[in-house]
Amino acid sequence: MFELRRLRLLHELALRGTLSAVADALSYSPSTISQQLALLEKEAGVTLLEPEGRRVRLTEHGRILAAHAARALDLDEHARGELESLHPGLAPVRVAVMQTAALAIVPAALALVAARAPRLRVELVEMPPELGLFELTARGVDLVIAEQYPGHTRAHADGLDRETLGTDPIRLAVGPADPAQSLIDLREKAWVMEPAGTAARLWAVQQCRAAGYEPDVRYELADLSAHARLVAAGQAVAVLPDLLWAGTHAPVRLLELPGHPAREIFSAQRTASRARAGILEVRRALRDAFPAASETRRVSP
């Protein structure tokens, strides 16, 4: 009989690629990971790993067992979910959340959870959507709040259940004294954008290209509050979502973009955890909190 914890290590290695990455994710030492995978090889009776330079890779047997490991972990999670349905709050719910959702949606959602299910423990970790969705697949978190930009559909990973919370308009942000009236007027401006490789960055660059120029991305920052400060100081321009201004007045001048684009805000969980009452309670609270966050958005005149 295979030991489920060792199967998870193999599954994690298949996802993350290196023993050190698995060790970091699960708070083990690489030597412990190696020892446990060696025991799994003995249980399997076949070679699961082979050296590749200083790293290891899965053999064909290893890839087959890793696929079975994923299914075994899904069954384990489904069983735990059914048990939890008889005793809600039995397990904490760990949520990966992007910055704007943490600012605008999560506080109200947590208040709803506290009122409806006071024994339920909710844990938050801020992650960019790309990382949050990966960690959801890898079982590092139970629920993700993420975004999808218009025209940039994210890959649909098997085993994930997505639910739209709502839409969030995206506008052009310029300094209070900036005379610009449209995207084309910002050809010579310094831009602040999110890091390369993110959906937000790809989308923002595409808007500039559609206007006929390559943006001068002088500042690359993950923190959207820092974007807003640079724009307010007249040192950069940006495209920013309305949720950033929830409950406040934008300190910048906001201009409409062509087509009035809006990003989709969604939550996602593993389909294997559909029966977990705690996750369902958090998702319900997020659905109820999003309209209030939308109504409290404030934009500059």
Rank of each mutant, 00 (worst) to 15 (best):
G278N: 06
A109Q: 11
A190C: 05
P92L: 08
V192R: 00
S34Q: 09
P88F: 10
L90D: 00
A222C: 06
Q36H: 10
L90N: 01
A96G: 11
D24L: 11
R270K: 12
A180I: 08
Q36S: 03
D288F: 01
P261N: 04
R218C: 07
A117S: 07
S267M: 13
R274W: 01
L230D: 00
P176D: 03
S34D: 02
V282M: 05
A14T: 06
P241F: 02
S34C: 05
A262C: 08
I170D: 02
M127T: 11
A238L: 02
L244D: 12
E281D: 12
P179T: 13
R287C: 03
Y149F: 15
L73C: 10
M193R: 00
T167Q: 07
Y28K: 04
E50V: 08
G53Q: 07
P215V: 09
D161S: 14
P179G: 09
A155M: 09
E147I: 00
D158G: 13
T137I: 10
I279S: 06
V95T: 13
L243E: 01
S294L: 06
E281W: 09
A210S: 14
R162A: 08
L120Q: 11
V174E: 03
L48T: 00
E126Q: 15
G132K: 01
P30Q: 04
A108Q: 12
L112S: 10
R284V: 03
A232Y: 06
Q99G: 08
I33M: 02
L160V: 15
E281L: 15
R139T: 03
A246N: 04
D168N: 14
L58G: 00
E281C: 14
F2M: 08
A222T: 14
L165V: 06
R71P: 01
L165I: 04
L65H: 01
A173V: 10
A277V: 05
V282D: 00
A293Q: 01
R253A: 04
A293L: 01
R171T: 05
R116A: 15
P92I: 08
L112T: 11
V113S: 09
E135I: 06
Q207K: 14
D76S: 12
L221W: 10
C208F: 03
A117H: 09
E147D: 05
A289E: 04
R139C: 02
A272P: 02
D168R: 01
D216Q: 14
L75G: 13
S34A: 13
G53L: 08
D185P: 01
S85I: 07
P195W: 07
A180M: 05
A21R: 11
G234V: 14
